[in-house]
Design a protein around this nucleic acid. Sequence first.
RNA 1: GGCCCCUUCGUCUAUCGGUUAGGACGCCUGAUUUUCAAUCAGGAAAGACGGGUUCGACUCCCGUAGGGGCUGCCA
Length: 479
Amino acid sequence: MHAPTDPTVHTHEATGSAIVTRFAPSPTGFLHIGGARTALFNWLFARKAGGKYLLRIEDTDRERSTQPAVDAILAGLAWLGLEADGPPTFQFTRAARHQEAATSLVASGGAYHCYLSKEEESALKEEARAKGLAFRSPWRDPDYGTPPTGASYVTRLRAPSDNTIIEVMDKVQGRVVTAGREIDDFILLRSDHTPTYMLAVVVDDHDMGVTHIIRGDDHLTNAARQSVLIKAFGWPVPVYAHIPLIHGDDGKKLSKRHGALGVDEYRRMGYLPEAMRAYLLRLGWSKGDLDIVSTDEALALFDLEGLGRSPARLDFVKMGSVNAHFIRLADDTRLMELLREQASQSGIDLSAIPDVILKAALPYLKPRAQTLPDLLDQLQFILAKRPITLDEKASKALSSEAIERIRRLRGELSLLIVWQHDEIKGSLDRFAGEENIGIGKIGPAVRAALTGGLAAPDLAVTMQLLGKQETLGRLDDII
RNA sequence: GGCCCCUUCGUCUAUCGGUUAGGACGCCUGAUUUUCAAUCAGGAAAGACGGGUUCGACUCCCGUAGGGGCUGCCA
């Protein structure tokens, strides 16, 4: 796993090597919307460049990592269609490699064993903080003393001297400089010799050949620490792009109340994965005036330059309109299947609607829906059982005069042989002509009789979808 | 406390020193109309604040305010 390293090469950008990105969530909870966006950016960037997008599960915290969380993350990514190139790496399985790396760093002087007790350590930390300095352990000095026999120790990075300038070139944030005095002697190996996050990311990113790291800007200051470690190993520093975190609609940190939900929740709410991708893409990335960008387009257009520097707020209203856009584009057969799934999940019985009717209805229903549940709502007029329950407005529309007209219209309709939209429409128009009225005079009443006030498409379409028998039956019920 | 990042219509954003500051969602008005919508035509709506630099700043610099992050034997 030890890749040969050219010491003259400092960043992957300079090498022009094939691009490798990664998404590295820790399995301590579901895959939330921010993580999904980070994964999307990494996926797009790698795929556009013909490189690789890898997945790594950062499970070095054994206390907080759970299998259900791993499953949720994997399921969420699969739903979003963000397949990794290769199986996920589980960080914990690489602990031996991390220990080996730390040991080599101790040998080369980049790290050291620290025998401070917890009490001594917190006292020194307090002291350093009061002075405005980063924590350094006295054990960094090789001549500090002889280690107490049998005492436990942690392995720490030997941070650079105070006046060293650590420079991180970030594709989003620009050049970020940190003084050496800001870098603490952070822990590489805990007293039980398990690796910490700081060590594990650096070693794994190197071993996995990661060239570009796109991640949340909560890691921006970590990038300085990590680059010190990377240089201590003599490895090339990856290209960084630290993207601002997503905020809630009040500009505050994203919380459950704001929609910091698992992506499975969005699925349950009836959003389409391609809509999620398009919405998430535009949260922090732009290209001129482009608004809704399909995944195919994004695969051709995505770049690091388009990443924004300020945090974006989650807006369910906009998300709804993006979803509406993709519902209109969605294939009817696929939509039908999704709808049946959605229905069974929310306890709605769609079995009364055969596939042919459902599929025929979709083109008329799609333009007025934002989510799958919206579509389900619009199917209610078909599901309604005779006799139809009339809401207040509907019963008002059914004056005695209107009912007389419906009686005559029913006669006309019953003569129709072909029960298709055009024929029904023709019959309706003919009837209006005969009665010497506009369709507006009879339409609301017919609609009321047919739907009881539920939303439904154009009358002729509604009748076609209901079928001749059901249509005439519903009319009979009010005559 | 220290250090770092951010700040254009309500929201997502364009602008990379010279624009009537553009687009999208939402909102308002009108048209259409057989329900709910959809659609079409208009409209209102922004450079956090204060200093500089410059012939000229949304754009560059400094400060203030607000928001966020790191400062863990969490990631």
